[in-house]
Simulated scan of single mutants.
Amino acid sequence: MSVLSDRVPYQAIIDRPKLRLPGDARVAVWVIVNAEEWRMEGAMPRTVLPPPMGQPLLPDVPNWSWHEYGMRSGFWRQLEALTSRGIPTTFAVNGSVCESYPRVASAAKEAGWEFMGHGFLQGPMHKVTDQRDAISRTIDAIAAFAGKPPRGWESPGLTETDETLDLLREHGVDHVANWVFDDLPETIATAHGPMLALPYTVETNDVVVHAIQQQPAAEFLSRGTDQFDRLYQEGADNPRCMAISIHPYLTGVPHRIGFVEALLDHIQAHAGVVMMTAGEMADWYRGEMTRLAG
């Protein structure tokens, strides 16, 4: 089954059916906090400090510590920013985090955040020796900790092989955040039934803005505001969905958290906005497709 032509036929946004958000809102916004475990004994998934003389060294203490700061300090700023504003939040979490960082996972659970699978350890699906086992371990770890298995999945680095979607659907996952190709959910075919691709983001994602493009702290607010304002304008004709993806080690730091808060305040100041979790967005879209088909 080819990824594009067979799994998800092309559909232009202007040809999508007219949908209705709750309260006739224009935009559905979902916020994703990504909690990951980086193992010190291996190469870091991402770095901020280049190795001395260009020679990678293990253990990579400074870059591991850069991420670890997020789990020790940055996460708590993001938690406060979201809970104080009453924003329903999707918690994309490595399965191992439930055991390695129980304080973080417990805080997300107590806040009522929706757990989403994010791989077992942080690393591309292409490097996983046994994907079926890794997916199963992730789902089991989250189910044991949160009390129910995750319905959603975001692969580390948004990576998939040809079999990833089939394995995820086989394990009960019904929506993914890997496909950043639309402003509305879209159905993807798998060997075990349909899967929804939710509108996710690489543009209003702090990894791209700060770690890859190395933009100044204010760029997250500027870009996020511009993204929201245009989607809000277009949503007068047909609703749009916007994702905001954040990581504790990037926008949980003191010089960036204020811009995340300002973006959330800008969005919440508008009428006609509904804040959703991933599962709520998936249920809304399926409900609308059923309504229109009836």
Score class of each variant (00 low, 15 high):
T187R: 15
A92H: 06
S2K: 04
A282T: 02
D24F: 10
V274C: 11
N63S: 00
W30I: 06
T187C: 13
Y249E: 04
P248T: 11
D133Y: 15
E154V: 01
A28C: 14
L58H: 11
I267T: 10
Q215P: 01
A144Q: 07
R46M: 12
T129Q: 15
A218L: 10
M53F: 09
S2E: 02
L168A: 07
L196E: 04
L231I: 10
I267Q: 10
L79W: 02
N205V: 01
T204A: 00
E163H: 12
A262H: 06
W113N: 04
T90F: 13
D174W: 15
R77S: 01
G42Y: 15
P102G: 08
S5L: 08
D283F: 13
M1W: 07
I13G: 08
G294P: 07
V31R: 04
T187D: 05
A43D: 06
P45V: 04
M281Y: 05
P52L: 13
G70D: 08
A12S: 06
R240G: 11
T138Q: 05
V33S: 02
W76C: 10
E36Y: 09
I244F: 05
P216H: 08
H255A: 01
A12L: 11
P51Q: 09
L4C: 10
I32N: 15
L49Q: 12
T89R: 10
D229G: 11
Q268W: 13
